[in-house]
Simulated scan of single mutants.
Amino acid sequence: MKRKGDKVDGWVILDKPVGLGSTPAVGKVRRLFGAQKAGHGGTLDPLASGVLPIALGEATKTVPFVMDGRKEYRFTLRFGEARSTEDLEGEVTATSDVRPADQAIRAVLPRFVGTIQQMPPAFSALKIDGKRAYDLARAGEAVDLKPRPVSIERLELMGRPDAGHADFVVSCGKGTYIRSLGRDLALALGTVGHLSFLRRTAAGPFREEAAISLSKLEALGHIPALLGALAPVETALDDIPALALTEAQADRLRQGQPVLLTRDVPPSGALLRAEAGSKLVALVRSDGVALKPVRVFNL
């Protein structure tokens, strides 16, 4: 049975607006392009804005590499009010009159850099016994989540709009919840808090400078104008070394067969981007003798 939609392959670096969920955002972009397949490179909360990489067609095969990439955010922490969702959406659950000084904030930041244990928010997309945590939380059921190790590379205080707010930038790894980070920062400072602003500025190789708004995509109208907003499939694989192959070798990979190399064999276990005539063919892994296809692209 023929799949509904057109063959459109590439990445849309969407500048997601506040108020739109990640899944509805993917649906809107997929419909605009008339694409057969679509997915995203990492959930962004409805109340967050910024970089939501959306994969169309063959780019969906590269989604895990964006998911595993570093993320960067700007966020504002509001002191004095804890909320059920750790952001503006939830109900106030605790209050405090403590408003920490800049020096106190800077003194606790090193505790949150490196590999740390983090308790995810109850209102999160994590699954507990097959059910989403946020569905259980909204139903008033107890949400039993466990702390998880997350990696934070950089956390800096950027400014203080007033005594009740602090602006930060953070660079972190997969699975880090910025809402939880804000909550824990406030607690470490002897107060409570929640995020009043959150914006993702980078996800893997995709940065906000290259992002396009939904309204601009809609203004472009239809193919072919929209195709100018597509980044190539291989953009998500920028960190993976490329290896040039002959067309005959590329055909073997396309058929799911290994390619034997007689010289310059990459070390066993190495992941490579196989290309023929500058066209992406497959992701391959070396076993020290041959290249075996991991993901084959139909481009």
Score class of each variant (00 low, 15 high):
E218F: 11
Y73G: 06
R138Q: 13
D9V: 03
F123E: 07
H40N: 07
I240N: 05
E89W: 02
D45M: 07
D251E: 14
R138W: 07
L243D: 03
S278Y: 05
C172G: 08
G114S: 13
D15H: 12
V284N: 06
A38G: 12
T235R: 15
A231H: 15
T235Y: 01
E89R: 03
P241D: 04
R31G: 03
R207W: 01
T43E: 10
K131F: 00
A211I: 09
F79E: 03
G19N: 01
T176I: 10
G175F: 08
T201N: 04
L56K: 07
K7E: 15
L283N: 00
T76Q: 14
L185G: 10
P232V: 04
V169W: 02
P241K: 01
L14H: 06
F79V: 11
A55L: 11
L217H: 02
S213V: 08
L260F: 14
A139P: 09
A94M: 00
V192Y: 08
V259P: 11
P64L: 08
V170K: 05
D9M: 03
G69R: 06
P241V: 04
V108L: 09
S196C: 15
R138C: 12
T191L: 04
K28C: 11
D9S: 12
L271M: 15
A211M: 05
K216T: 15
S180R: 03
R148A: 13
A231M: 15
F65I: 08
G80E: 13
H222W: 01
L261H: 13
F33K: 02
A55G: 12
D129W: 00
P17H: 01
G34A: 11
P258D: 08
H222I: 07
G228R: 15
Q103T: 13
D167S: 10
K216H: 11
A186K: 04
R273Q: 15
S49Y: 06
L14W: 00
F297Q: 05
A274G: 04
A25H: 03
A107C: 08
I212G: 08
R154Q: 13
A229V: 14
F168V: 12
P100W: 01
R3W: 05
S124R: 04
R132G: 10
A38T: 03
L280T: 06
L272T: 06
A163N: 11
L280D: 01
P53Q: 07
R160H: 04
Q249D: 12
S196Y: 03
K292Y: 09
K7Y: 05
L260W: 13
K28V: 15
G42R: 00
K174D: 10
V98I: 14
V150E: 12
V150C: 09
D68H: 13
A210S: 14
P205K: 07
A55Q: 07
A139C: 03
L88Q: 07
T235G: 11
H222Y: 07
L217T: 07
G42N: 04
G10C: 02
P64S: 11
T191S: 15
L20G: 06
A202R: 15
E208C: 00
I152D: 09
V98R: 14
K61C: 10
A139M: 08
L14A: 04
A107H: 05
A270Q: 14
A210E: 15
V289D: 14
L261I: 13
F112H: 09
A82R: 07
D15G: 08
F197N: 00
L283F: 00
K71W: 13
A219E: 15
L136D: 12
A274F: 00
